[in-house]
Design a protein around this nucleic acid. Structure first.
Lengths: 325, 325
DNA sequence: CCGAACTACTAGAGCGCTCTAGCTGACTTC
DNA sequence: GAAGTCAGCTAGAGCGCTCTAGTAGTTCGG
């Protein structure tokens, strides 16, 4: 288990200078085809792999994108996947920093800064506005999936208002007049969804009813327990995980979905197997746009607008139907 | 957005040498209390944060643990959380590398190697044995949650056989004689669980029946569709996600759980909200042991055994009961 | 056949840190 | 009071890479 081979080792063995090997490894012009091939073969032979730390240190630009994310969240997993591939296409590397119950967002972001990433893409990071703005002064920051009052950072998200409006219109068209919302508490976008729900119902002369929820299945389940004995004809949940918990309680409580009650989720993160009607955010597109925005800021392109808002779409599956009454 | 302050800047401003600042920042002995405080204050003032890349490069030992994981998997999220905190306690840093459908395990592991982490903790990385062994020759490797034939790496896992045995015994004691298993295909531990299930049933003179499943809710649901019309009295699933999909199909199909059919999951990853009877693996303990083992190898302790197998326990909740018939 | 222009390559500084070796001066010790 | 000890500090090399500046060698127009 001896130490890793270095550029020096490759250079010595190939009979060329360190600099030339570097040129070859980076794939930049400056070496003849023959030399290139020879060097690559030698590198391969001795199992050389460039040292990321050194490359990052020495380069004038690290070309490193820092990404925070919440593990355990399917939607974030999709975003991460998209971020990885978009970044790669644009020649950037990605370093992940997880946010967990024990490891709060600021901690996760500090780690990214310590790696001297050039820009930060924040997924699932709930930080207060002043801190976020301060961060935005230091490096390009793109917040994904939620809005912020800060003008110092970029935002890429889908319109919560539009998504909820689609869901409300769908339910109203089916004939529902008694529609409850299980909200997401302080979760990303929860306030916007709650407000849009209220506005949507008022627009139709209906009375909004918000039941406190949260981001997890458990939150959906506990909200469900308060509703199960005297259910509305339709429920709009903060997200799919919430909807899943709700469905579980409803079905166990003898309520048929969608016959007795319709349920609409949000995110399209769990939907396929459960035939859930839901509002879909295009994770791949959000990811691509976030990376593009970060890179645009880094490369000095002028992007006047700070916020990119995509329009979500409704996917009607099997958990919504006209009310029985 | 000027460049970050360096050790040099702190040293100049505090009127001391670079080396002294380094000593203070690392918290190692060699500076007086007064100087220490002074340097820290100056560092704070100018917003100095050590550069991870440089620290990693210069140090004789990087004290860096590389971790692969599958996003989107609640059990892995719990492991990651535990790994972060155990590593921190032992003075190691953690770098994550995600495995996604597009980014296969080898790719994820290569990234870790490029960061020159000292040891690798593999969560959710399915790689072939020869490659794994080759990796194990290069650096300490701890595989979490699944077994391997390779003798070149350490393994920390819970006993699949014991877990399945607990579940089978539980169902048999309740009076079930018609117990089906939905397996995990080629998933981690799937083969072991399948075999244990077969052995368990035979031990009781029962006939095993294995329905092909997989790792996701969707897999559970599709297996459920093949069972729903002619269900056994009990089903043992590969994991909780699988069980969740199964439950969904069963309940929609008019089967009451546990009245008509009992369901046992595996992992305890989703259980709380769904009152699922399941086999629990202690993620926190697995994580701690994995980190400890990696560190032990790094620090040259002799650990004769390669594999640490924990005994899982059964958590009986609301999805199992005596069969109606 | 000379200088310009270009290609192929190299020397060497420098990225921000750690760490060894050594230096200073105050305090013991006999 | 000379020698030893020790805490507190510094100089400087070096980690493995990138990148600028520059050196040979070849081609080519006039």
């Amino acid at each position: 288990m001896r130490t890793h081979p270095t550029l020096e080792d490759v250079a010595a063995r190939a009979g060329v200078s360190r600099a030339l090997v570097s040129i070859v490894m980076r794939g930049v012009p400056g070496a003849s085809a023959a030399t290139r091939e020879h060097v690559l073969r030698v590198a391969e032979q001795i199992g050389y792999r460039p040292d990321s730390r050194a490359r990052l240190l020495a380069g004038r630009r690290p070309r490193l994108l820092g990404v925070t994310l919440t593990l355990n969240h399917p939607f974030h997993a999709d975003l991460a996947e998209g971020i990885y591939s978009s970044a790669e296409q644009l020649g950037y590397e990605v370093v992940l920093s997880a946010i967990t119950p024990q490891r709060e967002p600021r901690r996760a972001i500090d780690t990214l800064l310590d790696y001297r990433c050039e820009a930060a893409i924040l997924v699932g990071a709930l930080v207060r506005e002043p801190w976020l703005s301060a961060l935005g002064e230091r490096l390009p920051v793109v917040v994904v999936g939620q809005g912020t009052r800060s003008r110092a950072v970029d935002v890429v998200r889908t319109s919560d208002a539009a998504g909820i409006r689609l869901a409300v219109e769908h339910l109203v068209e089916l004939g529902h007049r008694n529609i409850t919302h299980i909200d997401g508490g302080r979760g990303p976008g929860a306030a916007a969804r709650r407000n849009a729900y209220r506005a949507g119902l008022r627009r139709h002369g209906l009375t909004p009813r918000v039941v406190p929820g949260g981001q997890s299945e458990e939150d959906g389940a506990s909200a469900g327990r308060t509703l199960v004995d005297n259910p509305p004809t339709a429920v709009l949940t903060y997200n799919d995980r919430c909807a899943v918990g709700l469905l579980d309680v409803f079905v166990r409580g003898g309520l048929a979905v969608p016959d007795d009650v319709s349920v609409v989720g949000y995110d399209d993160s769990q939907a396929p197997y459960r035939r859930l009607t839901t509002v879909s955010q295009d994770a791949a597109q959000l990811a691509t746009l976030a990376v593009q925005r970060a890179v645009a800021r880094l490369e000095g392109e002028t992007v006047p607008e700070r916020e990119t808002v995509l329009t979500p779409h409704l996917i009607v599956r099997g958990t919504t139907a006209a009310p029985a009454r």
